[in-house]
Design a protein around this nucleic acid. Sequence first.
RNA 1: CUAAGAACAUCCAG
Length: 314
Amino acid sequence: VVSWNAILTALAQNGRLDEAQCVFDKMPEYTSLSWNVLLNANADHGLVHRARVLFDRCPQKDIYSWTILVTAYAMRGDLSMAAKLFKAMPQHSIVTWTAMVQAFGDNGDIQNASEYFIKMPERNSFAWTALIMAHIRGQDLKGAVRTFRNMPSHDVVSWTAMIQAHAECGLVEWAKTVYDMMPERNVVSCTVMLVAYSQAGHVDAARQVFDSMPRHNVVAWNAMAAAYATSGHLWTARMMLFSGPERNVVSWTAMIAFYAQYGHWDLSASLFQQVPVRNLVTWNALIATAAQSSQWRVAIDLFHEMAAEAIEPD
RNA sequence: CUAAGAACAUCCAG
């Protein structure tokens, strides 16, 4: 069972849902971990109904199983179901509590997020940061700052959330102040700062942040490319994407969208054909491209092809 | 060994 579980976990982590399902079906016996891994894989793919069926069939539901399902409903926006399940579950942990804070926070529902937060028997920086994010999404900068101040200890994630908090309100210089003040930075905090500058229209400042980073990952490269694309530098953006060490589905989709934004529908469409990975967003980007160039026939054909690739249109 | 917090692409919302 241990090795079966290891295989199952590996497949699930790589997003190979169908293969994980096959392995699961062939397993001679299960532990709750096996069920949870498959449950989570379905949830990750947005297949909440299938997750629910699995959950109901699962003979040994533990706190993990419940949390996965609660989070799945929350991600779909079904907060009342999430809350109902939360109430029904036999045990709560700091993780399940935090998941509820996060669930309401994602919706900008500061009120409910705070209520769950207050009722928590104990809190860690995950919980505090989730509450900060709730305030950010609810457009309450003051509340975000207040929450940050009330936190007993700050880590790089909560600091980064505060960069985000100020940037979201258009206060880039304050965001930069936070950025300068934080005791340590990582690739995410730098990328947040980079994006903040980009969104404020300061490409050059964004580039300076990029150049100052000790390490870059795909997200950083993608973000810098987007900064160029949105500031009129299509070809520099293209350079960034192609000269980086690595590209992912976001990079490809971004490039398809950039071409379209500049009216290069042909380039957009031909890149789509060559791209090694596609997801729902990639398809949406291309459909939008076709629609913008008034190729309705093409848009509709694409829509059907999409179903053929086993991607559910939304 | 499986569940919760920060960054990038499309649409939507603002």
